[in-house]
Amino acid sequence: MVNTKVSLSGLALDNPVIPASGTFGYGYEFAEIYDINLLGSFSFKGTTREPRFGNEPPRIAETASGMLNAVGLQNPGIDKVISEELPRLRRVFHKPVVANISGFSIDEYAECCARIDREEGVGLIEVNISCPNVHNGGMSFGTSPESAAEVTRAVKAVTTKPVYMKLSPNVTDIAAIARACEDAGADGISLINTLMGMRIDLKRRAPVIRNVTGGLSGPAVFPVALRMVWQVYEAVGVPIIGMGGVACAEDVLEMMLAGATAVEVGAANLVDPFASKKIVEELPAVCERLHIENLTDIIGGAHHG
């Protein structure tokens, strides 16, 4: 019998598989087709203080082994998320959820995190300082150690639940930013958000995506994500949630061997709505085949010496 349980800063998960923010809505679309309580948890759609339409369409483009998106943090705003989405979500998901919070100012991050922290059913706060598709917010906080630390301190000062800072890969030294977050009190690090990219429509001779650039996700980014999880594991002592192109149970194990305690599954949910379920179900057999009895034993296991 394989033990797939892991723990994120005291939050116990039955397994390390967590659908990633922005690919799972608030859970209902998936709850219609399978029992989402088999997941370790899931990270809900990135939420901001104000309701947001997001970017004008087109927001999506296909790439080799992946996709670009420039949704731009469309969400109903923190008030409605608390009053409408969370009560609905609790009817279909009975485990603690990961609350993904984004913002356009330090105050907004702190205010939204303080409010979501009080919500029953929220197990962990994932602070998105890495959205590449909005201007004057999101990623601008996650591209320097100083501003990443500033957001971390502001959020930690007003919350009681574990705070994981979600980092951008669009930086020169992700380890330095992770270290700054840890030093500022972050309980963990979540990475990677999408890689900035673009496509051009040959017929229109113009970018496919109206926002010009979008965030690349899917299997194309997996090796980059894995390398960054590896680097951050060497740089910090707090737990890591690894993500980026994860598509199967083997990818989950690679992420954990690189240093992740839990693993988020993103774009895979969009092309196969059963992807996260399949990964959870495949995991024990793949572990058995590889003689893994306790999943926690392999965290960072590829770092020798």
């Binding site: 679309e29 369409p57 927001r59 999506i60 483009a61 998106n69 969009l270 092309v271 709505p273």
Partner: peptide, 22 residues
Amino acid sequence: EERMGCGFGACMGCTCKTTGGH
């Protein structure tokens, strides 16, 4: 018609504005 990511309501890739909201 709009460019879609998932096609089943999860990714918010194809949102449009209507009199009834997004």
